[in-house]
Design a protein around this nucleic acid. Structure first.
Lengths: 212, 212
DNA sequence: ATTGAAATCACTCTTTCGGGTGAGTGGCGG
DNA sequence: CCGCCACTCACCCGAAAGAGTGATTTCAAT
């Protein structure tokens, strides 16, 4: 295959070692050019606006501004942006959030590295790149148990160890209402108590632990 | 500085991209030679026994067998092994476990990458390498709130959302005893309820979420 | 216009949680 | 030997959680 033109790539990841690894992998392709790096979501968005790369490799969990928000910002100014998520997270919520924000591909960092290049080429052909592993994880979510915005909000406070009463006063609603929401959350996540709800939500990427 | 001899290095990390990034960084040093790679703790231990590298770069969170256990295995057969932990985790318990298992250095993946080389050279001189950032985190632990083995065991079951009664029957003890342990755990972690105990324990690396 | 989902709140009731207090055992180090 | 600590268990008690049932409102979609 003789590539017609050079493909410009932006790397967004908060880990220096990962950025370096990606550079090393992408260097092997003659028509790939890394035009920029970003260490957080804000940098990624501004770098994309400035550099307009053909493809952006985007980590999800980054400080200051997460990858999902960065994808939204980028797609807002450039709806044709091709973004390939490269995450270590396997939570179905992370995957869904990234894809619905406009990502065209989703790679797991566990994957053997030889998927990065074909994924980028696939995106350049206008084709999404979703490995079966990722698709399966996403499919497990489709069981209709999607939390509402309010429920997600309450879940976030549950992670902090807040009691129902405190959650209520924080949100300006009654403890009874909070209990009603919590009940729905437990049912949707199919768990027994709030502690399990928190751990399941963390594993699925519905909420995240606050930075230390 | 003119290096006398070549330094052999083993890389243990489950992420291909990270391994590649480390290779890329280490390649810049003429006297560094990557002699092997491992994708989990067991591979790391057997690779170390076979290759006897001068320094081992070790990730902590790996499948099959974690980094801490790998360090223990390696130090059991080779007490002089020089191991440099390279973790994305900042939990004080992770740091303490790795160091007390015999690691001579601890680097955060966030760090700017130019610390890897001096850290390795420091280890080769027999000097440990603990950045202030890591040392501070470790110091915050020294406030005497160390959980006993039993308490850690109970905390693990709390993460799964088990009720006190179920934890008791799982461990063959009374619910009253479990409550007694839980009370002590809450006091030591300085939290209000079990949900907060779980999230704090996760952040500090005292327990980990089970693999999905 | 009607259906449906989401959010709100109330009332009851049982179970669980967490605090307080106390106490018996066994082990380990001073 | 004695004290300290981990582990064990018990009883009490108030507070919180969770299940059940039901009701209202709003808003968007059909």
């Amino acid at each position: 295959m003789t590539p017609a033109a050079s493909i410009s790539i932006l790397i967004a990841d908060d880990h220096f070692v990962v950025r370096e690894g990606l550079r090393s992998i992408l260097r092997r392709e003659a028509d790939f050019t890394v035009v920029g790096e970003a260490a957080n979501g804000l940098e990624a968005a501004s770098a994309h606006a400035r550099l307009r790369p053909d493809v952006t490799l985007m980590d999800l969990r980054m400080p200051v501004c997460g990858g999902v928000e960065a994808i939204q910002r980028i797609r807002a100014t450039d709806p044709a942006a091709r973004i390939l998520v490269l995450s270590s997270s396997e939570g179905d919520e992370d995957i869904h959030a990234a894809l619905s924000a406009g990502a065209m591909g989703y790679l797991l960092k566990h994957s053997s590295g030889d998927q990065v290049t074909p994924a980028i080429r696939s995106l350049m052909r206008g084709k999404p790149w979703i490995p079966r592993e990722v698709a399966d994880r996403l499919a497990s979510r489709a069981r209709g148990e999607i939390l509402s915005e309010r429920e997600r909000e309450i879940l976030t406070l549950m992670v902090l160890g807040e009691a129902n009463k405190q959650i209520g006063s924080a949100l300006g609603i009654t403890e009874q209402t909070v209990k009603s929401h919590v009940k729905n959350i437990l049912a949707k996540l199919q768990v027994r108590d709030r502690t399990e709800a928190v751990t399941v939500a963390l594993r699925r990427g519905i909420v995240h632990l606050p930075e230390v």
